[in-house]
């Protein structure tokens, strides 16, 4: 057994589910993920000069390059290529459907999303990036503005740790509201099961992309939602609406899987068309794999 094995174990949701200290849990995930990586995790961002242009009335005077004015006696405005720290938003769907866990997974979709979001926050804050959090169900429940302070991690993790399932999801309404709260371009990471009308999903994505944001969708699903492995005849109760439906799962499995696959394909295509990175994550997937996909995605994008 190598030295990294004990930490790697913490990347398994089953193991993670036994840890009650969320802060420790997130740190273990991140440490386990980066253990043995060759590149250091710390990266810097700075303002870099781009070009000069003529001064036009109305430009702030503070932007005038007085040194060049001294040399040329003309007013030039110095332009910089903005390169600041990343402003990342973790947008987590806390509707009731997200509390579905299934029989095979150790964590519910919500808990899984919280762990993953916490790990990402831990990682980005370690790079001094700005990280904010939005929680929504039928409406926006919580907004923690982006910050890169050391205290921010504690705030975020505390919030993620104490996540409670919300109400019925009104996806389109809530996400539009959430998108309106994001003022600056940044990276938006949406954690949701997207159990809504695919047309609404497309609308929602447009809201988030409106300001030129980069968007990553973590489509969080339970194994049962994908495979529908139920056998026993009985009622199926909607966790949000409490509606019941009586059915024989065995007869429906094939049709269900077929329909589900088509639905996922449709969402995926929509995301591709809109240049949204789409990640479908099962709640049984180890966290390292999930994080690796994020890193790879980042590399591919930049």
């Amino acid at each position: 057994m190598s030295q990294t094995e004990p930490l790697k174990n913490f990347l398994d949701p089953k193991t993670v589910s036994k840890i009650t200290d969320f802060r420790l849990l997130v740190r273990l995930i991140v440490d386990g993920f980066f253990m043995g990586a060759h590149r250091g995790p710390k990266q810097a961002f700075s303002l870099e000069y781009s070009k000069h242009r003529d001064y036009y009335p109305g430009d702030p005077l503070k932007r005038v390059d007085w040194r060049l004015f001294g040399k040329t006696d003309r007013h030039f405005v110095k332009q910089y290529e903005e390169e600041t720290n990343l402003e990342a938003w973790l947008v987590v769907d806390i509707s009731k459907s997200m509390s579905y866990q299934g029989s095979r997974a150790a964590l519910s979709k919500l808990r899984y999303a919280a762990c993953l979001a916490g790990a990402i926050a831990h990682w980005l804050l370690g790079q001094k990036d700005l990280v904010g959090l939005i929680l929504f169900d039928s409406r926006v429940r919580k907004i923690i503005p982006p910050s890169s302070t050391n205290r921010q991690l504690a705030i975020l993790l505390k919030e993620l740790c104490n996540l409670k399932e919300g109400e019925e999801s009104q996806f389109e309404h809530a996400t539009r509201h959430a998108a309106s709260r994001i003022k600056r371009r940044g990276l938006i990471m949406l954690f949701s099961d997207l159990l809504t009308d695919p047309d609404q999903i497309e609308k929602t994505l447009r809201y988030f992309l409106h300001r030129g944001n980069e968007l990553i969708v973590f489509h969080t699903l339970a194994h049962e939602e994908l495979e529908f492995p139920f056998k026993r005849f009985g009622f199926f109760e909607d966790m949000e609406t409490k509606q019941k439906i009586l059915l024989q799962p065995e007869y429906l499995r094939e049709e269900y899987c077929k329909q589900m696959k088509e639905c996922l394909e449709r969402i995926k295509k929509t995301c591709m068309r809109m240049k949204v990175h789409y990640e479908q994550i099962e709640t049984t997937t180890p966290f390292d794999k999930a994080l690796m996909r994020i890193v790879e995605t980042r590399k591919r994008l930049y």
Partner: peptide
């Protein structure tokens, strides 16, 4: 038997 499901 009633099985809770995310959405029906």
């Amino acid at each position: 038997r009633t099985t809770s499901f995310s959405s029906v």
